[in-house]
């Protein structure tokens, strides 16, 4: 089986942040934690109204939800513009060919980096 990923038609992403909120709920994240983050392209310091959702290191493509509940990832399911798709990367790449101004992601979770955790004198104890 091909690795899975996300395809997003950013031409029609409105920056509504439903993906952020859906992910936050699904993974019980705090109010300012993100499993996916919407960023606006900035050109020459100005607005473009081009938004790109970017999965973070927390994104596991909703492995539990997908495998146990048979649902699409929470972000894909709730996207109001309906511009996100989940599937095998080799299938998603065909969307890329058909739709310019789209992106694909192949996320893989990794634990947060805590570079100073083990150093003495940094924990405040």
């Amino acid at each position: 089986m091909s690795a899975r990923g996300l395809w997003i038609d950013v031409e029609f992403c409105t920056g509504c942040m439903a993906c952020e909120a859906a992910c936050r709920q699904e993974h019980d994240l705090g109010p300012t934690e993100y499993g996916i983050k919407v960023v606006e392209q900035v050109l020459n310091g100005g607005q473009t109204f081009n938004y790109v959702p970017i999965p973070t290191d927390l994104c596991d493509l909703c492995a539990r939800r997908v495998q146990q509940e048979g649902k699409r990832p929470a972000c894909v399911h709730h996207c109001m513009a309906m511009v996100m798709e989940y599937g095998p990367l080799d299938a998603l790449i065909e969307h890329m060919a058909r739709r310019p101004r789209s992106v694909m992601w192949s996320p893989k979770p990794r634990p947060p980096r805590r570079p100073y955790e083990d150093l003495p004198g940094t924990t405040g104890e």
Partner: peptide
């Protein structure tokens, strides 16, 4: 959790950040 109903004819499963912050 609150989850949009995919087959619902109004929202087609989608929800906005306010609804998704219902908890």
């Amino acid at each position: 959790k609150v989850e949009g109903i995919a087959e619902h004819p109004y929202n087609l499963g989608t929800l906005c950040p306010r609804a998704l912050a219902l908890r």
